[in-house]
């Protein structure tokens, strides 16, 4: 692969990582001030800040190493069609079960991904992956403990969690949409997805939930439902709505200092 193609794949990968984190951070911050208990309000705000911080770091690498605009311009001025987030990350805030389930499915994917990227040939990415792995570990612990608690607490909480799982599952699979910049040097999306299924399925099952996946003869998990892809498609309405809100003030005067 030529350097040029390699760069395109890396740029594409970093945009996917950064845009996912930005959208998750934005959506999670929507719980700030209105969580079901004060303590969770605070926890979701913390995770939102971590995610926004990670997005900023990825954009900074794109800016400093790969010739892209500065982070604020990338986040607050880019057109919806140029974003590369998976649909899961931009879906509007609904109930707490969906918030917890999204966080769990997403953080498990992050963990698998960051594990692989810790030895990525592109050194700035490998460095960030090693750094973020530690923080994401706590997000995942938080998500896991909520899934386990709500899955077994009351019939109502289990039913809500099950509904959230079914609604979010195809979108979560969409996190592993193959990149358009060519297959990444770190790991194939299919391999990452297999690693993710092996992580999340047993925990969901042990939390009294019905997983839309089954085990093959070889003992691997396979989804029974198709993924919803959306990174490169016509921008989904939730991405457009999120960006309208996020870029509103900046766009009052994109040349001003805010």
């Amino acid at each position: 692969m030529s350097d040029h193609t390699q760069d395109a794949a890396t740029i594409d990968l970093l945009f996917r990582l950064a845009d996912d984190e930005l959208m998750m951070g934005h959506r999670n911050a929507e719980w700030t001030g209105v969580g079901p208990v004060l303590e969770e309000d605070i926890a979701f705000s913390s995770m939102a800040q971590d995610e926004l911080g990670h997005a900023f770091a990825y954009y900074t690498v794109l800016h400093e190493h790969l010739g892209q605009d500065n982070p604020d311009t990338l986040a607050f001025r880019r057109e919806a069609a140029d974003f590369r987030n998976a649909r899961l990350t931009a879906l509007p805030r609904s109930d707490w079960a969906a918030a917890v389930m999204r966080q769990f499915l997403y953080d498990a994917a992050e963990q698998v991904r960051l594990e692989h990227y810790s030895s990525h040939p592109f050194a700035p990415l490998a460095q960030l992956a090693r750094k973020f792995r530690g923080e994401e570990k706590y997000h995942l612990m938080h998500g896991k403990s909520w899934v386990m608690r709500l899955g077994s607490a009351t019939e109502d909480s289990r039913a809500r969690l099950q509904a959230a799982l079914e609604a979010l599952w195809p979108h979560a699979l969409g996190l592993f949409e193959p990149g358009q910049g060519g297959e990444d040097a770190g790991a194939s999306e299919a391999a990452l997805c297999a690693g993710w299924l092996a992580q999340v399925c047993p925990l969901l099952v042990s939390s009294s939930l019905q997983v839309p996946a089954e085990r093959t003869a070889k003992g691997q998990w396979q989804s029974r439902v198709a993924a919803v892809y959306g990174r490169y498609a016509e921008p989904a309405p939730e991405r457009v709505a999120l960006l309208d809100a996020m870029q509103k003030v900046y766009r009052l005067d994109p040349n001003a200092d805010w």
Partner: peptide
């Protein structure tokens, strides 16, 4: 949701979190 830069978005989220 409308904070216009990374710095502002992070600081405002942290501030509201502090209030809670």
């Amino acid at each position: 949701p409308h904070a216009p830069t990374f710095k502002r978005k992070l600081a405002l989220t942290a501030k509201v979190q502090d209030e809670v």
